[in-house]
Amino acid sequence: MAESRNILIADDNEEARQLFCDIIKLLGFTPKAVSSGVAALQQLKVTPFDMVILDMRMPDLNGLDTFKAIRQFDSSVPVVLTTGFGMDKGVQEALSQGALLCLEKPFNVARTMKTIREIVEKESPKK
C-alpha cells in the first residue's frame, strides 16, 4: 500500500488494544492505540485519522460521550464502537447519531478486517 491509513483505537484493556493493533497492521494500516476516551480526543485534535474505534465502556469518558465529543469538532471521521455488553441504550444512541456500527465482543476477526477495510476505503478515500 502506497499511503498508509491511520486508525485510532481507544480501549482501556491493554490486550484488546493490542488485538486491534495487530488486526490493523495485518490490513497494512497504521494503528495508534490509547487507553481512554480523553486520550482519544487529544490524539484526534493533533492528528487526522481515517477511522476511530471506541470501546463503549471506559472509565473516564465512555464510548458514547467520546463519540459525541468527537462530533463537536470533526463531523466526518468514521467511528466504530466495540462492546462486550450487548447492544444497550448507549450503543443505540451512538448509532442513531451517526456511529457506523458496533462490533460485539467477541467478534469474528476475518469479518472485522473486511469491515474495517471497507469503511476506510469508502468513508475516507485518499485523494
Binding site: 484488546a16 462486550g84 465482543k105 467478534f107
Partner: peptide, 11 residues
Amino acid sequence: LNNPLSVASGF
C-alpha cells in the same frame, strides 16, 4: 466475560 473472551478468541 466477553472482554477476556474476545481477546483469547481474537488472537
